[in-house]
Design a protein around this nucleic acid. Structure first.
Lengths: 224, 224
DNA sequence: TCAATAGTGTCTATTAGACAGTATACA
DNA sequence: TGTATACTGTCTAATAGACACTATTGA
């Protein structure tokens, strides 16, 4: 309907605006939270949405590198794991371009991630993923994108494929189980969990290391 | 060389060349095959690669619509199921642009798909996916993209999530099992397969319909 | 000693695989 | 009748879950 006058029918064609958006997840207060950013630009100005940025072909050597640059700009640090979630696109997504697409990357970060707003970021906030569907709606289809990233992360945790950097260097099995339970949002049977961790050779013990309070200390492991 | 790819987008940044490539899979002679296309343009001119095309922001209402348009142009028909596989991008992927990216879609099509080469297609060929790694290399990283699409399809079949249109409207359980085995490249236990199909309520019987040769006919089902 | 958490033994339920049996078509 | 394929019964193996038990620390 809104055919652009400058569009040519022979190559080269006009290209869409390409963005990279981030779904940054962390466990806080025992449940999964996601970072949302208050938008300073149209569309959805003043509403909350995923932090992201425009792909820079003069700076980025890959899509993942673009995601890392955006993380650096918006959050002040790089991410230890990035999983591509999905790519969406269409016309009328963004008034700055007739056609816009977004490559979505997800990452599980540690809860102590400093949320110091960077360039063009008014505010950053942690929000429980359980409240994403309800309440104040997010910009674009970001609620759906978050759901997809969460689903992907949960499947990975169910398969005991923990993203690099999502766990501390050393941890106990009860800690790893608690992390899994927080991500999945449900309890896991202790015996079953330990059996599966054992069977998959996911971890190796750190000899001699124990830790504990006024109770039996736990063996410390690291990822193998 | 690269100046002809200047797209002069409205936003301040130059945007990459965006392509949509297709991994079209089908079962032939009892094993999984993929359609490859002989390239008529640089780069990799004369080599084989995935059929694909450039995103047209004046024509395509979404990335999936772009994939359908490309299928129509290259193969002369639309696809009944399209699953996004991955998106890759970087500089120096294509001499027509300084930065190029590809959104990859996979589809399981019926083996009788006519491979009539369409626009700008020199030839289309079915190739067994088992031979993708070896022998004549494919253009770009298309071998890797095919492996990812195959992996995704096999996981779906293992989970009894058959793509729409991948099965005929009506089929028998032995036919469905044979299809699964061909896709997975391994035998499945008959009792286990039927138990799982039963448990997931994947199919419903078509009353009265049977089919067979000189032996006991099989119950005919359709997807529920 | 107790409290609290770590770790194990073991029984049961569920699911998967193996294999032999029965069923039903046509020649 | 035989043969070929469809379907089922059932035993066994592997895995998951439940739950009680022991182990080890500090208070």
């Amino acid at each position: 309907m809104s055919s652009n006058a400058t569009t040519s029918n022979t190559p080269p064609y006009r290209m869409p605006l390409v963005r990279v958006d981030l779904v940054l997840l962390a466990v806080q207060q025992g449940c999964l939270h996601v970072i949302v950013s208050k938008r300073q630009e149209t569309p959805f100005k003043g509403q909350w949405g995923l932090p992201g940025g425009v792909l820079r072909i003069d700076l980025d050597m890959s899509l993942e590198a673009a995601a890392q640059r955006v993380a650096q700009e918006r959050l002040g640090r790089k991410l230890s794991n990035l999983d591509q979630v999905v790519t969406v696109g269409g016309p009328d997504r963004d008034p700055r371009a007739p056609w816009a697409m977004t490559v979505v990357y997800g990452s599980l970060v540690s809860a102590d991630l400093e949320t110091t707003p960077g360039k063009r970021v008014q505010a950053l906030n942690w929000r429980p993923v359980s409240e994403i569907g309800a309440g104040e709606p997010l910009a674009f289809d970001h609620a759906k994108l978050i759901r997809m990233a969460v689903q992907q992360l949960r499947q990975a945790v169910r398969d005991l494929r923990f993203p690099a950097g999502a766990t501390p260097d050393e941890f106990t099995l009860p800690e790893l189980q608690a992390l899994s339970e927080s991500i999945l949002g449900e309890k896991i049977d202790k015996v079953t969990f330990r059996r599966r961790v054992e069977a998959t050779q996911l971890v190796e013990p750190v000899t001699g290391s124990m830790r504990g309070g006024a109770h039996r200390p736990a063996q410390v492991y690291r990822l193998r």
